[in-house]
Simulated assay, not measured.
Amino acid sequence: MGRERDLRFRVVTRVQRYLANPVSRRLPFHTLVETTGRTSGLPRRTPVGGRRVGRAFWFVSEYGEKSQYVRNIQADPRVRVRVGGRWHHGTAHLMPEDDPRARLASLPRVNSTAVRLVGTNLLTVRVDLAD
């Protein structure tokens, strides 16, 4: 089972990195989270599916702490989130105590379905928005 999960992770992350994410980042109203690269210090933009609730933005990482953007958040929680074509500054918090499957039920359906299908280590992320 571990080998199958590792293969799925490698295949999905390559498809995301080289095909899906470059296209999604160019769509003006696609939701993005921008982290700071923990090694390069450069901005890294990752398409995510989430929802703003009041002054917070919630989403679920399909690979948890294996995701590069989650590792960037661990190194520097200051992020920006593009929602509805507008950028917001915020502070990201990893929420391992939150039930990610229950959280997915409250988030956009298409992305949530994809995360459930390919995810192997779901992790909820909350971004407290400053503006």
Score class of each variant (00 low, 15 high):
Met95Trp: 09
Met95Thr: 01
Met95Ser: 08
Met95Ala: 13
Met95Asp: 15
Pro96Gly: 00
Pro96Ser: 07
Pro96Phe: 05
Pro96Ala: 01
Glu97His: 08
Glu97Pro: 06
Glu97Arg: 10
Glu97Met: 11
Glu97Gln: 13
Asp98Val: 04
Asp98Met: 02
Asp99Gly: 02
Asp99Lys: 05
Pro100Tyr: 02
Pro100Lys: 00
Pro100Arg: 00
Pro100Met: 01
Arg101Trp: 04
Arg101His: 06
Arg101Glu: 07
Arg101Leu: 02
Arg101Gly: 01
Ala102Glu: 15
Ala102Asn: 08
Ala102Cys: 07
Ala102Arg: 15
Arg103Cys: 11
Arg103Tyr: 02
Arg103His: 08
Arg103Ser: 07
Arg103Asn: 01
Leu104Trp: 07
Leu104Tyr: 03
Leu104Cys: 04
Leu104Thr: 05
Leu104Asn: 06
Leu104Phe: 07
Ala105Phe: 04
Ser106Asp: 11
Ser106Lys: 13
Leu107Arg: 06
Leu107Cys: 11
Leu107Tyr: 05
Leu107Met: 04
Leu107Ile: 10
Pro108Asn: 09
Pro108Trp: 09
Pro108His: 09
Pro108Thr: 04
Arg109Met: 10
Arg109Val: 08
Arg109His: 14
Val110Trp: 15
Val110Arg: 09
Val110Asn: 09
Val110Ile: 11
Val110Asp: 10
Val110Leu: 15
Asn111Gln: 14
Asn111Arg: 10
Asn111Tyr: 12
Asn111Ala: 13
Ser112Arg: 03
Ser112Asn: 03
Ser112Thr: 00
Ser112Ile: 02
Ser112Gly: 14
Thr113Cys: 10
Thr113Trp: 13
Thr113Lys: 12
Thr113Leu: 12
Ala114Phe: 15
Ala114Glu: 13
Ala114Lys: 09
Ala114Arg: 07
Ala114Ile: 14
Ala114Met: 11
Ala114Leu: 13
Ala114Thr: 10
Val115Gly: 02
Val115Ala: 05
Val115Lys: 01
Arg116Ala: 11
Arg116Tyr: 01
Arg116Ser: 10
Leu117Lys: 05
Leu117Ile: 11
Val118Met: 07
Gly119Ile: 02
Thr120Ala: 09
Thr120Ile: 11
Thr120Leu: 09
Thr120Ser: 12
Asn121Trp: 13
Asn121Asp: 15
Asn121Ile: 00
Asn121Glu: 14
Asn121Leu: 12
Leu122His: 05
Leu122Lys: 04
Leu122Val: 03
Leu122Gln: 03
Leu122Arg: 04
Leu123Lys: 01
Leu123Asn: 06
Thr124Asp: 07
Thr124Pro: 12
Thr124Cys: 12
Thr124Val: 10
Thr124Ile: 04
Val125Ala: 10
Val125Thr: 00
Val125Lys: 02
Val125Ile: 08
